[in-house]
Amino acid sequence: MRFKRNIATSEAGFIFNPASGDSFSSNPIGSEILTQLKEDKSRQEIIEVIASRYDVEKNQFERDLEDFMSQLRDYNLLDEN
């Protein structure tokens, strides 16, 4: 499962899905995760990077990442394969 290729992200945290016309916004940490998803980082890699940069327990972030990914799925921003 990966972030759809054609989705545009901006520095201000805006996301545009040209396939649906929907726009989204995210907070800075959300944008950071999206960038990593675009770079095809694995979930484990993302957890390592975020946990080393931010003041958060790994398993706390794991839960939050799971929730974030489920939202991306709900918003149809992930490729299902």
Partner: peptide, 14 residues
């Protein structure tokens, strides 16, 4: 020093 953590969120712009 580590950055202050905040849960990642994404919102659809309505």
């Amino acid at each position: 020093e580590k950055l202050k953590y905040e849960r990642p969120i994404i919102k659809k712009l309505n």
